[in-house]
Design a protein around this nucleic acid. Structure first.
Lengths: 132, 132
DNA sequence: GACAAGTTGACAATGGTTCTCAAGGACGGT
DNA sequence: ACCGTCCTTGAGAACCATTGTCAACTTGTC
Protein backbone atom coordinates (compact mmCIF):
# COMPACT_ATOMS: atom_id res chain seq x y z
CA UNK A 1 0.00 0.00 0.00
CA UNK A 2 2.67 2.47 0.96
CA UNK A 3 5.18 3.61 -1.64
CA UNK A 4 7.95 2.07 0.43
CA UNK A 5 7.15 -1.40 -0.85
CA UNK A 6 8.96 -2.30 -4.03
CA UNK A 7 8.82 -5.64 -5.72
CA UNK A 8 11.08 -5.51 -8.74
CA UNK A 9 9.33 -7.18 -11.63
CA UNK A 10 11.74 -9.20 -13.70
CA UNK A 11 11.39 -9.48 -17.44
CA UNK A 12 11.23 -13.20 -17.92
CA UNK A 13 10.54 -15.31 -20.97
CA UNK A 14 7.18 -16.27 -19.45
CA UNK A 15 6.00 -12.72 -18.87
CA UNK A 16 7.02 -11.80 -22.37
CA UNK A 17 5.03 -14.70 -23.74
CA UNK A 18 1.92 -13.62 -21.87
CA UNK A 19 2.34 -10.05 -23.09
CA UNK A 20 2.72 -11.27 -26.67
CA UNK A 21 -0.38 -13.38 -26.40
CA UNK A 22 -2.34 -10.47 -24.96
CA UNK A 23 -1.30 -8.31 -27.88
CA UNK A 24 -2.73 -10.88 -30.26
CA UNK A 25 -6.44 -10.39 -29.58
CA UNK A 26 -8.73 -7.61 -28.53
CA UNK A 27 -11.68 -9.40 -27.06
CA UNK A 28 -11.93 -11.00 -23.63
CA UNK A 29 -10.36 -14.44 -23.18
CA UNK A 30 -10.20 -16.83 -20.28
CA UNK A 31 -6.88 -17.66 -18.65
CA UNK A 32 -7.01 -21.12 -20.14
CA UNK A 33 -7.56 -19.78 -23.64
CA UNK A 34 -4.63 -17.45 -23.20
CA UNK A 35 -2.59 -20.37 -21.98
CA UNK A 36 -3.51 -22.28 -25.13
CA UNK A 37 -2.61 -19.30 -27.28
CA UNK A 38 0.82 -19.22 -25.72
CA UNK A 39 1.34 -22.89 -26.47
CA UNK A 40 0.20 -22.38 -30.02
CA UNK A 41 2.66 -19.54 -30.45
CA UNK A 42 5.41 -21.98 -29.54
CA UNK A 43 6.14 -20.96 -25.97
CA UNK A 44 5.59 -23.08 -22.93
CA UNK A 45 4.36 -21.40 -19.78
CA UNK A 46 2.74 -23.05 -16.80
CA UNK A 47 -0.92 -22.38 -16.25
CA UNK A 48 -0.26 -21.15 -12.73
CA UNK A 49 2.22 -18.65 -14.09
CA UNK A 50 -0.32 -17.41 -16.60
CA UNK A 51 -2.74 -16.80 -13.75
CA UNK A 52 -0.09 -15.10 -11.67
CA UNK A 53 1.00 -12.88 -14.51
CA UNK A 54 -2.51 -11.91 -15.51
CA UNK A 55 -3.37 -11.01 -11.93
CA UNK A 56 -0.25 -8.92 -11.61
CA UNK A 57 -1.02 -7.11 -14.84
CA UNK A 58 -4.56 -6.52 -13.69
CA UNK A 59 -3.31 -5.06 -10.42
CA UNK A 60 -1.01 -2.84 -12.40
CA UNK A 61 -3.96 -1.70 -14.48
CA UNK A 62 -2.55 -3.02 -17.71
CA UNK A 63 -5.26 -5.55 -18.35
CA UNK A 64 -8.95 -5.61 -17.58
CA UNK A 65 -10.47 -8.59 -15.88
CA UNK A 66 -14.14 -9.20 -15.70
CA UNK A 67 -16.41 -12.18 -15.21
CA UNK A 68 -18.57 -13.83 -17.81
CA UNK A 69 -21.99 -15.19 -16.96
CA UNK A 70 -20.52 -18.37 -15.57
CA UNK A 71 -18.32 -16.46 -13.17
CA UNK A 72 -15.17 -17.28 -15.08
CA UNK A 73 -12.51 -14.61 -15.16
CA UNK A 74 -11.82 -13.23 -18.62
CA UNK A 75 -9.06 -10.83 -19.58
CA UNK A 76 -7.78 -8.45 -22.20
CA UNK A 77 -5.22 -5.69 -22.38
CA UNK A 78 -6.65 -2.23 -22.07
CA UNK A 79 -5.96 1.44 -22.23
CA UNK A 80 -4.87 3.13 -19.03
CA UNK A 81 -7.82 5.45 -18.60
CA UNK A 82 -10.95 4.58 -16.72
CA UNK A 83 -13.45 3.01 -19.10
CA UNK A 84 -16.13 0.40 -19.55
CA UNK A 85 -16.87 -2.23 -22.17
CA UNK A 86 -19.41 -2.92 -24.82
CA UNK A 87 -19.08 -6.64 -25.45
CA UNK A 88 -20.63 -8.80 -28.14
CA UNK A 89 -22.18 -11.78 -26.44
CA UNK A 90 -21.72 -13.90 -29.54
CA UNK A 91 -18.16 -13.27 -30.70
CA UNK A 92 -16.74 -11.30 -27.81
CA UNK A 93 -15.77 -8.27 -29.89
CA UNK A 94 -15.19 -5.47 -27.45
CA UNK A 95 -15.35 -1.70 -27.62
CA UNK A 96 -13.98 0.43 -24.83
CA UNK A 97 -16.34 3.23 -23.95
CA UNK A 98 -16.13 6.17 -21.63
CA UNK A 99 -18.99 7.85 -19.89
CA UNK A 100 -18.26 10.89 -17.80
CA UNK A 101 -21.98 11.24 -17.18
CA UNK A 102 -22.15 7.79 -15.66
CA UNK A 103 -19.15 8.47 -13.47
CA UNK A 104 -20.84 11.57 -12.16
CA UNK A 105 -24.11 9.79 -11.68
CA UNK A 106 -22.64 6.95 -9.61
CA UNK A 107 -20.78 9.46 -7.49
CA UNK A 108 -23.83 11.48 -6.69
CA UNK A 109 -26.02 8.46 -6.03
CA UNK A 110 -23.44 7.17 -3.60
CA UNK A 111 -23.07 10.52 -1.86
CA UNK A 112 -26.82 10.81 -1.60
CA UNK A 113 -26.91 7.63 0.44
CA UNK A 114 -23.84 8.46 2.47
CA UNK A 115 -21.60 5.86 0.87
CA UNK A 116 -17.91 6.72 0.61
CA UNK A 117 -14.90 5.37 -1.20
CA UNK A 118 -16.86 4.50 -4.31
CA UNK A 119 -16.03 2.16 -7.13
CA UNK A 120 -18.27 0.62 -9.72
CA UNK A 121 -18.57 -1.95 -12.45
CA UNK A 122 -20.44 -1.36 -15.66
CA UNK A 123 -20.46 -3.62 -18.67
CA UNK A 124 -22.77 -3.53 -21.64
CA UNK A 125 -23.60 -6.68 -23.58
CA UNK A 126 -25.19 -6.90 -26.98
CA UNK A 127 -24.91 -8.39 -30.44
CA UNK A 128 -22.40 -6.70 -32.71
CA UNK A 129 -23.13 -5.74 -36.31
CA UNK A 130 -21.12 -8.69 -37.65
CA UNK A 131 -23.06 -11.23 -35.62
CA UNK A 132 -26.57 -10.18 -36.50
CA UNK B 1 -39.25 -18.47 -24.76
CA UNK B 2 -42.68 -18.76 -26.36
CA UNK B 3 -45.74 -18.55 -24.18
CA UNK B 4 -46.63 -22.10 -25.14
CA UNK B 5 -44.05 -23.50 -22.75
CA UNK B 6 -45.39 -24.00 -19.27
CA UNK B 7 -43.57 -25.61 -16.44
CA UNK B 8 -45.91 -25.60 -13.51
CA UNK B 9 -43.99 -24.62 -10.44
CA UNK B 10 -45.15 -26.55 -7.45
CA UNK B 11 -45.30 -24.97 -4.02
CA UNK B 12 -43.13 -27.26 -2.00
CA UNK B 13 -41.88 -27.07 1.54
CA UNK B 14 -38.38 -26.46 0.21
CA UNK B 15 -39.29 -23.56 -2.01
CA UNK B 16 -41.22 -21.99 0.82
CA UNK B 17 -38.18 -22.32 3.07
CA UNK B 18 -35.98 -20.56 0.54
CA UNK B 19 -38.53 -17.78 0.13
CA UNK B 20 -38.71 -17.34 3.89
CA UNK B 21 -34.96 -17.16 4.17
CA UNK B 22 -34.80 -14.61 1.37
CA UNK B 23 -37.32 -12.46 3.19
CA UNK B 24 -35.08 -12.43 6.23
CA UNK B 25 -32.26 -10.28 4.92
CA UNK B 26 -31.80 -7.45 2.49
CA UNK B 27 -28.16 -7.67 1.55
CA UNK B 28 -26.53 -10.09 -0.86
CA UNK B 29 -25.77 -13.59 0.45
CA UNK B 30 -24.10 -16.60 -1.08
CA UNK B 31 -26.05 -19.77 -1.73
CA UNK B 32 -24.22 -21.47 1.08
CA UNK B 33 -25.08 -18.72 3.54
CA UNK B 34 -28.70 -18.97 2.52
CA UNK B 35 -28.52 -22.71 2.98
CA UNK B 36 -27.19 -22.17 6.50
CA UNK B 37 -29.93 -19.66 7.24
CA UNK B 38 -32.53 -22.23 6.27
CA UNK B 39 -31.00 -24.80 8.59
CA UNK B 40 -30.94 -22.29 11.38
CA UNK B 41 -34.60 -21.49 10.85
CA UNK B 42 -35.31 -25.16 11.46
CA UNK B 43 -35.91 -26.38 7.95
CA UNK B 44 -33.78 -28.86 6.08
CA UNK B 45 -33.22 -28.31 2.38
CA UNK B 46 -30.50 -29.81 0.24
CA UNK B 47 -27.82 -27.49 -1.04
CA UNK B 48 -28.52 -28.51 -4.63
CA UNK B 49 -32.14 -27.58 -4.15
CA UNK B 50 -31.18 -24.19 -2.80
CA UNK B 51 -29.13 -23.60 -5.94
CA UNK B 52 -31.92 -24.80 -8.17
CA UNK B 53 -34.51 -22.66 -6.46
CA UNK B 54 -32.37 -19.55 -6.45
CA UNK B 55 -31.61 -19.95 -10.14
CA UNK B 56 -35.27 -20.41 -10.92
CA UNK B 57 -36.20 -17.33 -8.92
CA UNK B 58 -33.49 -15.37 -10.67
CA UNK B 59 -34.81 -16.45 -14.07
CA UNK B 60 -38.26 -15.38 -12.96
CA UNK B 61 -36.84 -12.00 -11.98
CA UNK B 62 -37.75 -12.36 -8.34
CA UNK B 63 -34.21 -12.32 -7.03
CA UNK B 64 -31.07 -10.59 -8.18
CA UNK B 65 -27.89 -12.56 -8.61
CA UNK B 66 -24.53 -10.97 -9.00
CA UNK B 67 -20.94 -11.98 -8.45
CA UNK B 68 -18.61 -10.83 -5.74
CA UNK B 69 -14.94 -10.23 -6.40
CA UNK B 70 -14.14 -13.91 -6.07
CA UNK B 71 -16.67 -14.82 -8.72
CA UNK B 72 -19.04 -16.32 -6.20
CA UNK B 73 -22.72 -15.92 -6.93
CA UNK B 74 -24.58 -13.86 -4.34
CA UNK B 75 -28.30 -13.34 -4.13
CA UNK B 76 -31.10 -11.28 -2.66
CA UNK B 77 -34.77 -10.74 -3.36
CA UNK B 78 -35.57 -7.62 -5.31
CA UNK B 79 -38.27 -5.38 -6.60
CA UNK B 80 -39.66 -6.18 -10.01
CA UNK B 81 -38.52 -3.06 -11.77
CA UNK B 82 -35.19 -2.69 -13.51
CA UNK B 83 -32.64 -1.35 -11.07
CA UNK B 84 -29.06 -1.46 -9.91
CA UNK B 85 -27.34 -1.75 -6.55
CA UNK B 86 -25.29 0.34 -4.24
CA UNK B 87 -23.53 -2.19 -2.04
CA UNK B 88 -21.43 -1.68 1.09
CA UNK B 89 -18.24 -3.61 0.63
CA UNK B 90 -17.86 -4.04 4.37
CA UNK B 91 -21.27 -5.12 5.64
CA UNK B 92 -23.11 -5.79 2.41
CA UNK B 93 -25.91 -3.33 3.10
CA UNK B 94 -27.63 -2.73 -0.20
CA UNK B 95 -29.67 0.08 -1.70
CA UNK B 96 -31.58 -0.42 -4.92
CA UNK B 97 -31.14 2.53 -7.23
CA UNK B 98 -32.65 3.49 -10.53
CA UNK B 99 -31.03 5.56 -13.20
CA UNK B 100 -33.06 6.34 -16.27
CA UNK B 101 -30.14 8.43 -17.50
CA UNK B 102 -27.83 5.46 -17.40
CA UNK B 103 -30.32 3.29 -19.23
CA UNK B 104 -30.54 5.88 -21.93
CA UNK B 105 -26.79 6.25 -22.08
CA UNK B 106 -26.09 2.54 -22.49
CA UNK B 107 -28.74 2.34 -25.18
CA UNK B 108 -27.28 5.15 -27.21
CA UNK B 109 -23.69 3.99 -26.82
CA UNK B 110 -24.72 0.57 -28.06
CA UNK B 111 -26.66 1.95 -30.99
CA UNK B 112 -23.75 4.19 -31.88
CA UNK B 113 -21.59 1.11 -32.35
CA UNK B 114 -24.26 -0.91 -34.07
CA UNK B 115 -24.82 -3.33 -31.20
CA UNK B 116 -28.33 -4.69 -30.81
CA UNK B 117 -30.27 -6.56 -28.18
CA UNK B 118 -28.62 -4.73 -25.32
CA UNK B 119 -28.37 -5.63 -21.68
CA UNK B 120 -26.02 -4.32 -19.05
CA UNK B 121 -24.72 -4.78 -15.55
CA UNK B 122 -24.00 -1.91 -13.22
CA UNK B 123 -23.13 -2.19 -9.57
CA UNK B 124 -21.74 0.45 -7.28
CA UNK B 125 -19.56 -0.44 -4.32
CA UNK B 126 -18.66 1.76 -1.41
CA UNK B 127 -18.54 2.04 2.34
CA UNK B 128 -21.87 2.75 3.99
CA UNK B 129 -22.35 5.39 6.71
CA UNK B 130 -22.51 2.75 9.44
CA UNK B 131 -19.20 1.19 8.47
CA UNK B 132 -17.09 4.31 8.29
C1' DG C 1 31.52 -16.58 -9.83
C1' DA C 2 28.59 -16.45 -5.96
C1' DC C 3 24.61 -15.02 -3.29
C1' DA C 4 20.05 -13.40 -2.19
C1' DA C 5 15.64 -12.87 -3.79
C1' DG C 6 12.20 -13.10 -7.24
C1' DT C 7 10.05 -16.84 -10.47
C1' DT C 8 8.50 -20.94 -12.27
C1' DG C 9 6.14 -25.45 -13.01
C1' DA C 10 4.13 -29.86 -11.88
C1' DC C 11 0.84 -31.34 -9.06
C1' DA C 12 -2.11 -31.35 -5.12
C1' DA C 13 -5.68 -29.12 -2.89
C1' DT C 14 -9.74 -25.99 -2.62
C1' DG C 15 -14.26 -24.91 -3.06
C1' DG C 16 -18.30 -23.29 -5.49
C1' DT C 17 -21.55 -25.20 -8.62
C1' DT C 18 -23.68 -28.77 -11.36
C1' DC C 19 -24.87 -33.56 -12.41
C1' DT C 20 -26.85 -38.14 -11.46
C1' DC C 21 -30.46 -40.96 -10.38
C1' DA C 22 -33.33 -43.38 -7.34
C1' DA C 23 -36.89 -42.12 -3.98
C1' DG C 24 -40.57 -38.91 -2.71
C1' DG C 25 -44.44 -35.59 -3.39
C1' DA C 26 -48.04 -33.00 -6.05
C1' DC C 27 -51.95 -33.00 -9.05
C1' DG C 28 -55.66 -34.38 -12.23
C1' DG C 29 -58.64 -37.87 -13.33
C1' DT C 30 -61.40 -41.80 -11.80
C1' DA D 1 -59.12 -42.52 -1.58
C1' DC D 2 -56.30 -44.71 -5.48
C1' DC D 3 -53.46 -44.27 -9.77
C1' DG D 4 -50.34 -42.82 -13.01
C1' DT D 5 -47.53 -39.18 -14.50
C1' DC D 6 -44.35 -35.89 -14.05
C1' DC D 7 -42.05 -32.58 -11.30
C1' DT D 8 -38.84 -32.34 -7.22
C1' DT D 9 -35.60 -33.54 -4.08
C1' DG D 10 -31.27 -35.05 -1.67
C1' DA D 11 -26.81 -37.31 -1.06
C1' DG D 12 -22.87 -37.69 -2.99
C1' DA D 13 -19.96 -37.78 -6.99
C1' DA D 14 -18.20 -35.15 -10.56
C1' DC D 15 -16.56 -30.82 -12.58
C1' DC D 16 -13.44 -27.41 -13.21
C1' DA D 17 -11.53 -22.80 -12.56
C1' DT D 18 -8.35 -21.06 -9.47
C1' DT D 19 -4.91 -21.10 -5.83
C1' DG D 20 -1.35 -23.18 -2.81
C1' DT D 21 3.06 -25.85 -2.24
C1' DC D 22 7.79 -26.23 -2.67
C1' DA D 23 11.97 -27.58 -4.74
C1' DA D 24 14.52 -26.21 -8.78
C1' DC D 25 15.78 -22.35 -11.56
C1' DT D 26 16.75 -17.25 -13.16
C1' DT D 27 18.09 -12.69 -12.66
C1' DG D 28 20.61 -8.76 -10.98
C1' DT D 29 24.20 -7.33 -8.00
C1' DC D 30 28.50 -7.23 -5.72
Amino acid sequence: MTSTERSPVRPTRQRRAVATALAGFDDFRSAQEIHDLISRQGDSVGLATVYRTLSALADAGEVDMLRNEDGEAIWRSCSDTHHHHLVCRTCGATVEVEGPAVERWTGSIAAEHGYADISHTLEIFGTCPACR
